[in-house]
């Protein structure tokens, strides 16, 4: 049961949150300008590091706001918020 720091509500149990995977992956400005391979990269390919990972969470059962944090995927320790 991770303890996740919501920037708006404070530390809350993992069960209040929804996981959103890698952070900072923007929707392409002009999808039509992308090749099929580039579009596939956007759709399907995300980083998957062992160690620090900038990821997205949404406080679903609380303020319902999305935020980013950095968590270590090897230890589950939360390294930095935002």
């Amino acid at each position: 049961m991770l303890l996740i720091p919501c920037p708006w509500c404070g530390d809350r149990d993992e069960t209040e949150f929804h996981y959103g995977g890698q952070a900072h992956v923007a929707y392409p400005q002009s999808p039509d300008a992308l090749s099929d391979a580039q579009w596939a990269e956007y759709l399907f390919v995300r980083d998957n590091p062992k160690g620090e990972f900038a990821e997205r969470w949404c406080h679903n059962a609380g303020c319902r706001r999305w935020f980013n944090l950095v968590r270590d995927t090897a230890t589950h320790q939360i390294v930095v918020q935002r």
């Binding site: 049961m1 991770l2 303890l3 149990d13 589950h76 320790q77 939360i78």
Partner: peptide
């Protein structure tokens, strides 16, 4: 003993979840 000091205790018919 789970992440961020989340410890589960079994006391007969009660399961405690301690943060």
């Amino acid at each position: 003993y789970y992440d961020q000091n989340y410890v589960v205790l079994a006391q007969r018919n009660t399961l405690w979840h301690v943060r």
